[in-house]
Nucleic acid binder design. Structure first.
Length: 577
DNA sequence: GCCGTTTTCGGCCCGACTGTTTTCAGTCG
């Protein structure tokens, strides 16, 4: 099992920040912890193993926080945080996860009405117990109910990155257990759905005993829900359910096929089996009459005996993949290795954590050919961007261009910006200034509630702007927090196809935007895509894999993704050539 | 609590929006 990761430490610091904000003490102290949490989460090196000096060298981490980090790494807990936890029920902090409900109102609800969970809040609203409470009017009630709905819809599900990283840690640990021949995760996680209800881990072994033993003894195991010889379920310290199924090695392929799903896909494959006089189960593909096994050990063989090529798990949703497979028309899906660069990233000039050089160096280390820096433009006031600042950055970008990486010619840097699309579809800066950028991403960051027609006009106008090359995180959704904006997407996609404006597939795990369903729709209009990390720190660059997964779920091929193109071709596209 | 420095305390991203209020607090990006 890996040691305590930076994300774990960041989570603890963030929790402390939240608790401080709820108790209503020094707001700047809470902010300091929040800042430290962000810095720790985005720090390129593992904190476990760093000395005291190296800890305080992290921006935002001083003596006090470094002490708490050290204590946490040593003991797995922090005394002061434990004390605060006792004073504030966990449910109160949970309340602040409801959109439109912050620390002040959460505390008021707790102190005045004794509310300490999201469910209790819902009941209190239904029972009209919020009426008359200072600061809570009818509109607020409505907003809170809406927020609770959003939270419930995905609140029980883990984000893709959390689940993936957890599953990788678990499979790595179990693979080392005596007698374990294979270990992998299946289920919706293998299909790379945007959120995951639970994690299905599969292992192949003759004897399941040692694996089950090791599984319940994992450090992440908080509770054993069920324990048997073929299946054991646990709940992790994060509250995620993980099922381990141990199968005989000669059933590996059938089990992987069965437990990867989706249910709809499996209904179709079992139908095909039946028509061929076969029976498909988690143990094997066998003849109905004789019971003789025809395939089981390899997933590829299962599909082959159904008359199909192996189907990538990301496609197994019964969205046409069976027909495409049968007709030999499965798409050749884009892979992470196809990406030659990243076209939407930030630095510490705005809200990123890494310096330009740190980010570019990390990009070079990833083997990219090119890399665009796209810090925020002035319309997002909080970023305090100016022409002078971005022009100074351009100088730095030009100076660094071609100097990094082992590749011949070095990493090529593009100087871009992420513009803000205002309610009328206008963006920051006049056209002649925009013409000076190599690349412009334009995104919606506010006014999420425009009526559909106005929202559609807004996006169509931005797509038609000759200086806008990519529409960033087009729906502006935040998983579990905010549904996407409402627009006539077919009209938007048509406009993008016409102006050759790429739609972003933003890889941030809480965005994954465009979502796969809209990618499928967009492809019918022949639009181009850009798969971007939207990285705000060096570790964020690794999140590209989730964007690629989402693109693949949308059947996207290499040719449709502008950042798989050569630099020459990309430049021609950016010049509108 | 951190940081920078005008070395030992004062400032800390800033503005918009919303729903509530009757002059503003809370939330958000």
């Amino acid at each position: 099992m890996a040691a305590t990761g930076n994300k774990d430490i960041a989570a603890v610091l963030q929790e402390y920040a939240d608790l401080l904000a709820i108790t209503g003490g020094d707001a700047f102290k809470a902010r300091a912890y929040e800042r430290a949490a962000r810095a720790v989460g985005g720090h390129p090196a593992e904190l476990a193993g760093l000395g005291a000096k190296a800890l305080t060298d992290i921006p935002g981490v001083g003596k006090s926080i470094a002490g708490k980090v050290a204590e946490y790494l040593r003991t797995g807990t922090v005394t002061e945080i434990d004390e605060l936890r006792e004073r504030i029920p966990a449910g109160v902090r949970e309340l602040t996860r409801v959109p439109a409900l912050g620390p002040r109102k959460a505390l008021l609800l707790h102190d005045e009405l004794g509310i300490s969970s999201v469910d209790e809040l819902a009941e209190a609203i239904e029972g009209q117990r919020l009426r008359g409470l200072k600061g809570f009017g009818p509109k607020t009630e409505e907003k809170l109910l809406h927020g609770i709905g959003l939270l419930k819809a995905s609140g029980e599900r883990a984000p893709l990155d959390t689940a993936t990283e957890l599953a990788e840690r678990i499979t790595a640990a179990l693979a080392g257990v005596e007698g374990c021949e294979r270990c992998a995760y299946a289920g919706s996680l293998r299909r790379m759905r945007e959120t995951v209800g639970d994690i299905d881990v599969l292992a192949a072994a003759q004897d399941s005993g040692p694996l089950m033993e090791a599984f319940v003894a994992l450090p992440v195991t908080a509770e054993v829900i069920a324990r048997g010889t073929t299946k054991t379920s646990i709940r992790t310290t994060d509250g995620i359910q993980v099922d381990l199924r141990v199968v005989a090695p000669d059933s590996w392929g059938a089990a992987m096929q069965y437990f990867t799903g989706s249910r709809e896909h499996n209904i179709r494959t079992r139908e095909i089996a039946r028509r061929r006089g076969l029976k498909l189960s988690e143990y094997s593909l066998s003849r109905v009459k004789s019971g003789r096994r025809v395939a089981a050990e390899r997933e590829e063989d299962v599909y082959e005996h159904l008359g199909l090529p192996w189907i990538p798990p990301v496609l197994r949703e019964d969205r046409g993949e069976i027909e495409a497979a049968r007709d030999g028309e499965l798409p050749e899906l884009v892979t992470e290795g196809d990406l030659r660069g990243d076209l939407h990233t930030h630095t510490d000039l705005t809200d990123g954590l890494g310096t330009l050089e740190e980010m570019a160096r990390a990009a070079a280390d990833r083997g990219f050919t090119y890399y665009a820096v796209t810090d925020h433009a002035p319309d997002l006031r909080m970023q305090r961007m100016t022409k002078a600042k971005i022009l100074a950055q351009r100088e730095q970008v030009r100076a660094l261009d071609g100097t990094l990486g082992k590749r011949r010619g070095g990493l090529r840097l593009l100087h871009g910006t992420e513009l803000n699309i205002d309610p009328d579809g206008e963006v920051d800066w006049p056209a002649d200034f925009l013409a000076g950028f190599d690349l412009c991403v334009a995104s919606v960051h506010s006014h999420f509630d425009l009526p559909r027609a106005a929202m559609t006009r807004r996006l169509v106008k931005a797509a038609g702007n000759p200086h806008v090359h990519v529409i960033g995180h087009p729906t502006a959704r935040m998983l579990g927090k905010r549904g996407g904006i409402d627009a006539d997407w077919d009209e938007v996609f048509e406009a993008c196809a016409h102006s050759r404006t790429a739609l972003e597939i933003n890889a941030q795990p809480h965005r994954l935007d465009l979502p796969d369903e809209l990618i499928l729709r967009a492809r019918r209009h022949g639009v181009l895509f850009s798969i971007d990390s939207d990285a705000h720190s060096v570790p964020d660059l690794a999140q590209l894999r989730y964007g690629v997964g989402t693109a693949r779920r949308g059947w996207v091929t290499k040719a449709e993704v502008i950042n798989t193109w050569t630099l020459t071709r990309l430049r021609a596209f950016l010049r509108r050539g």
